[in-house]
Design a binder for these strands. Structure first.
Lengths: 208, 208
DNA sequence: AGGTGGATGTCAGTTACTGACATCGACGCT
DNA sequence: AGCGTCGATGTCAGTAACTGACATCCACCT
C-alpha cells in the first residue's frame, strides 16, 4: 500500500475542523482544506463523500459501541435499562475527548448544513438501537420509541456537558436526564430540581 | 403586485414533487422543475432556498399549529398531555391529505438528502415545542425531553399511518403510540409476546 | 399616458462533486 | 537489480447547485 505522508484521512479531518473553526464552514472551500493538508481537492473527495462528512467519520464507531453495549445488557433488563447501559458506555468515550468534542460541536451548531448531517447520524444511531432492541425481543413500536428516547436523552445530556464547566462527568448528566425523562413520561409535574430562580414557575403543583 | 400566471410557488412545488417521484430527486435538475412550471431556474431559487426546500414549505404552518395547540392546553395539564393535544391537532390536518402525504413521504424517504432536511424540520418543531412548554412554566430539561418525545411519537405514528391501509385514523395511532411510550418509560417490560421474534404484529396495549 | 414596484428573465461566475485517465511509490517476484 | 502489480494520488474536464448584478415585464396608481 503505497503512500506519501501517513494518516491522510486524519490530516484532512484536522485541517477541516481548524478551517471551519477559523473562517466558518461556508467560507471554507474544499480546495483549501486539501491544500492545508498537502493534498488535492480530488483526494479529499476520495476519503469523504462530501464537505460535511469530514466531521462525522467517527459516527460508525460510536454506533457500534452504543449498540454493542445494548446488545450485551443482561437479557432480563427492561429496554430502557439496556439503552441506559449503552448510553453510559458512550459517555465514557466522550469524557476523554472533551476539548475535541467542544470544538467540533461549536462548528456544527454554527451551521445549519452541519446540523442536518448530525441529525441524520443520530437518526441512524436510533435506527441501529431499535434494531438491536428488536434483536432482544422488544416488539415495535416499543423498540423504536425506546431508541429515540435514548438518543434524546443523550442529546440533552451532551448539550449540558458541553455547555457546563466540565466538573460534572457526562455519565452523571446522562443518568440525571434519564431519570428526568422517566418522570416526564410518567406525567409527574417537574419540580424545580435545584434552587435556580430562572423564569418563574407559575402555579404548578398538583397533578391530575 | 405584478404576475404572469398565479400560484407560482405552488406550481413549482407540484412540479418538483412530480419530477422527484418520476425520475428521483438526484436525477431531477432545478432547471427541469422550473421549465415544467413555465419558469426559469433563477425564479425557482427566489422562491425556495434550495432544491430540497421546495418539499418543506408547509413546515412553518405545521409548527405553528402544533405549538399553538400546546400553548392553548389547559394550564393544569401535565407537559406530556399538553403535547398530546398538539399532536392530535396536527393529525387532523394530515388526515385530509393522505395521498399527498404518502407521495411526499415516498420521495423523501428514498433520498438521504431529503431525509436530512426532514430531520432538521422536525428538530425545529421540537425546539418550538420546548420553547412553548417553557412558556408554560416547564423547566429544563423536562421541556426539551417532553418536546423530543412528542415528536418521536408523531414520527412513529405517522410511519404506521402511511404504511397501513388507511382504515385507522392517524390520531388513533398517535394515541396508541403515546400510551406505548408511557409504558416504555415506566420500565414496563414488553416481553416477547409468544417467544418468537417473527414480524407478526405484536400486541399493543398489553398493560394495565 | 406616465410612473412605480415587485416579480421574472438573462447572464456570468463560484464551488461542490464526479468520471476518465495519467502518475507515483511501495511491495513482491524472479 | 530489474520488473510488474496495485492502491493511492494527481490532473483535467465537465455537470449542476446556487448567487449577484442588471434588464425587463406586468399590474396598479395617479
Amino acid at each position: 500500500m503505497g503512500r506519501w505522508e501517513p494518516n491522510t484521512r486524519e490530516r484532512l479531518a484536522k485541517a477541516a475542523l481548524n478551517l471551519y473553526g477559523e473562517r466558518g464552514f461556508e467560507q471554507t472551500t474544499v480546495a483549501e482544506i486539501a491544500k492545508s493538508a498537502g493534498l488535492t481537492e480530488r483526494t479529499f473527495f476520495r476519503h469523504y463523500a462530501d464537505k460535511r462528512e469530514v466531521l462525522f467519520s467517527g459516527a460508525v464507531e460510536l454506533e457500534q459501541l452504543f449498540a454493542g453495549a445494548v446488545a450485551d445488557a443482561p437479557p432480563s433488563s427492561a429496554p430502557i435499562d439496556a439503552v441506559a447501559l449503552g448510553l453510559y458506555a458512550v459517555c465514557e468515550v466522550f469524557e476523554e475527548r472533551r476539548e475535541f468534542a467542544r470544538k467540533r460541536h461549536a462548528v456544527i451548531s454554527a451551521t445549519a448544513e452541519l446540523r442536518e448531517r448530525e441529525l441524520i447520524k443520530l437518526a441512524s444511531l436510533a435506527a441501529a438501537l431499535a434494531e438491536t432492541l428488536r434483536g432482544r425481543g422488544v416488539p415495535e413500536p416499543a423498540a423504536s420509541l425506546t431508541a429515540e428516547t435514548g438518543v434524546a436523552v443523550f442529546k440533552v445530556a451532551f448539550e449540558r456537558w458541553i455547555t457546563a464547566d466540565g466538573t460534572r462527568p457526562l455519565v452523571q448528566l446522562a443518568r440525571d436526564s434519564l431519570d428526568e425523562l422517566r418522570a416526564v413520561a410518567r406525567g409527574d409535574l417537574p419540580v424545580r430540581p435545584e434552587g435556580e430562580a430562572g423564569p418563574g414557575v407559575p402555579e404548578e403543583s398538583a397533578e391530575a
